[in-house]
């Protein structure tokens, strides 16, 4: 067996893949939020600046492979995460009659798989609303799609709930990724904690502002 294959079959190796894919997705979030925040200028520039970016994303050839990479990242992350969860459950064929797990660990850590799935559901809906529609069916400027989508309170509510789960997913996930890489030690701990707040709190709030803005501003 090759070295890499062996690594990928080891428990620690697989965790590293989870962690790297997770961090990769986190980096996407930063970029995605930055771009999306320009949509908030809609009243001043009519979404022009935002649309330039959206147009650029949709047409610039170099973006394509990056897009595939991103989708692959989501796929690997979700599939492997759920696969590991299934494997791990099989390690305890007979469960405990009484298990007070809440006294020894956080809910977010025990239920990453669940928050992950919920984020996954969100993604399917979300990507369909914007990415799929704009790329294949609906060629209006992106800002129009956004206005339309976020005019529906139900849709916005769905976003709020999903972002909440994303926050929970990242609350555990972000520091966990560094633990897996062996970096959550010593003086790094404080740093990871601080940056973690950015990811699990600030970024989801940042996202949440957009739909709320569109819902209430129009």
């Amino acid at each position: 067996m090759g070295k890499t294959a062996k690594f990928l079959q080891s428990s620690v190796g697989r965790k590293v893949v989870m962690s790297l894919s997770g961090l990769f997705l986190c980096s996407f979030l930063v970029l995605h939020l930055t771009v999306n925040l320009f949509a908030l200028q809609v009243k001043s520039d009519g979404g022009a600046e935002f649309d330039t970016y959206a147009h650029f994303m949709a047409t610039y050839p170099l973006i394509r492979p990056l897009e595939w990479l991103l989708f692959a990242g989501f796929l690997v992350h979700a599939v492997l995460g759920l696969y590991l969860e299934v494997l791990n459950r099989r390690r305890r064929p007979i469960g405990y009659e009484v298990n007070r797990a809440h006294e020894n660990s956080t809910w977010t850590s025990r239920f990453v798989w669940l928050t992950g799935i919920l984020v996954g559901v969100f993604l399917v809906v979300h990507v369909n609303t914007f990415f799929v529609q704009s790329r294949f069916f609906d060629h209006r400027p992106m800002i129009e799609l956004i206005k339309e989508a976020f005019a529906r309170p139900g849709y916005v509510a769905f976003y709020m709930v999903s972002l909440f789960f994303l926050a929970l997913h990242l609350k555990h996930g972000f520091q966990s990724a560094f633990q897996t890489l062996g970096l959550r030690v010593g003086k790094f701990q404080k740093l990871i904690h601080a940056v973690g707040v950015l990811f699990w709190l600030v970024i989801p709030i940042g996202f949440a502002i957009i739909p709320l803005y569109f819902l209430f501003a129009f």
Partner: peptide, 30 residues
């Protein structure tokens, strides 16, 4: 099973071994 960093082990360990040792293991392995 594989670790998903829930840290229940540290909480229940009678010798309160810290999960920072798990981080070290991961680093050693990498």
């Amino acid at each position: 099973g594989s670790c998903t960093n829930t840290y229940a082990c540290e909480a229940e360990c009678p010798k309160q071994i810290s999960v920072s040792h798990i981080a070290r293991l991961n680093r050693e392995y990498l």
